[in-house]
Design a protein around this nucleic acid. Structure first.
Lengths: 230, 230
DNA sequence: GCATGTGAATAGATTCACAGCG
DNA sequence: CGCTGTGAATCTATTCACATGC
């Protein structure tokens, strides 16, 4: 049973699997048993050929002339994404954003649970958020010993983000999601992704300016700009 | 002076310009007058050839044997990104996340200012956040008439995100940043970007599983997974 | 001499178009 | 017949390597 992934899944495909999964869950909710690549593509906002190629990396899970079995595909994507297990998550930095993240209900609809909240501000230590209380970041090692977080979310100011990242890595975290507006460097064995509000706004600003700037391209026959990127 | 952009800037490059800008501002802060592509690359977490090629799309702004003039390059990137003007932004949805965004100090370090906050929950309407008060989403047209928001940020539940997007577009917004876990469709003239916590976590989960899953690749000689993507 | 700027080479992602099969 | 699965073609992005010019 535990065959290793036979195909290497391209990064761009990996990034879309969660979208397909979400679409499939909607379809499933609606009680539909099978779905075509065309329908999935429409829901996911991509084109059908891409859906088929993406899914083909997981295996030949469709039926020609019919489509894909919804429940089966949900399971396969979950498995491929590692969502059949529950990853322990620690959040560092409990300002506005950190609190918002900590309170996020349906934390990715299963697959993750928050095991710790840390901050360096003594004024925040002890605060209860959801069913956890904030601990001092110096206790990270102790927290790690108890609950072995695999994923760390950084929601601190940029100035301390690298230090926090280093501490997370030292505590055994091997994936980091960085919300701080800073470029982090981590060892090779640690995965890093970033989410950056001001970068996203600046990208939109670029296309906004393009549009208004010189003479309004109107219908310029190619991608109008920054659409569903990343 | 107002020459139109002579070159078409690739999407991937546009997405990196804000990172270079941030790095340059740091260098500028430190009082350094010129910077090499090598140094910039290090700060931005990319390689030097990429920096040079990216910057070459803006024009030949470097000096061979020397590097780039920091202040000059800051100005050019700002201009290219459309940050020499101030874009009016409206935030829709003032739950935990919307509030966190509304309170975000240094809203992208200039270039943007919030002109409106809207929500459909009567319990939230009237709340003051920063120096604005929350208005009902039905007032969006009125708000648009007053302050002409160009950019809309959606921080609502997924279930209403498409409706909110439609309203924003109807109100004249031409760029949308979507935080709701939903695929939105907007007219061609509207730019759309998304930020999705649960998708990011699921991507990390994939690489996390790869790492632990089958026999620990250890040093598998290629990208260990999901590093600084998008 | 040294760091930029850029053609050429390579790698990666998307799209096409159709063969294959239920 | 209809929809998947996939080679081939295309497009986009990255990296190399060196000519160019301060």
């Amino acid at each position: 049973m535990s065959e290793r992934s036979p195909r290497r899944i391209p990064e761009a495909t990996v990034a879309r699997l969660p979208i397909y999964l979400r679409s499939l869950l909607e379809v499933s909710e609606a009680g539909t048993a099978t779905v075509s690549s065309e329908r999935l593509a429409e829901m996911a906002g991509v084109n059908a050929a891409k859906v088929r190629k993406d899914l083909s990396y997981l295996g030949s899970y469709g039926t020609r002339g019919v489509g894909y079995d919804v429940e089966f595909l949900v399971y396969q994507i979950r498995r491929e994404l590692g969502l059949t297990q529950d990853w322990p998550v620690v959040i560092a930095g409990l300002g506005n954003l950190g609190r918002a993240l900590a309170n996020y209900r349906n934390f990715g609809a299963r697959g993750f649970h928050i095991v710790g909240l840390v901050d360096s501000d003594p004024g925040k230590v002890g605060d209860r958020i959801g069913d956890l209380s904030v601990r001092h970041i110096d206790e990270l090692a102790a927290l790690a010993a108890e609950s072995h977080p695999a994923i760390g979310i950084i929601a601190t100011p940029a100035s301390v983000a690298q230090d926090v990242a280093d501490r997370l890595v030292a505590a055994g975290v091997t994936s980091i999601l960085n919300f701080a507006p800073a470029v982090l460097s981590v060892p090779d064995h640690v995965s890093l992704r970033k989410v950056d509000l001001s970068i996203e706004l600046q990208i939109l600003s670029f296309y906004q300016q393009q549009q208004q700037g010189h003479g309004v391209p109107g219908d310029d026959g190619d991608t109008p700009g920054g659409r569903v990127a990343s």
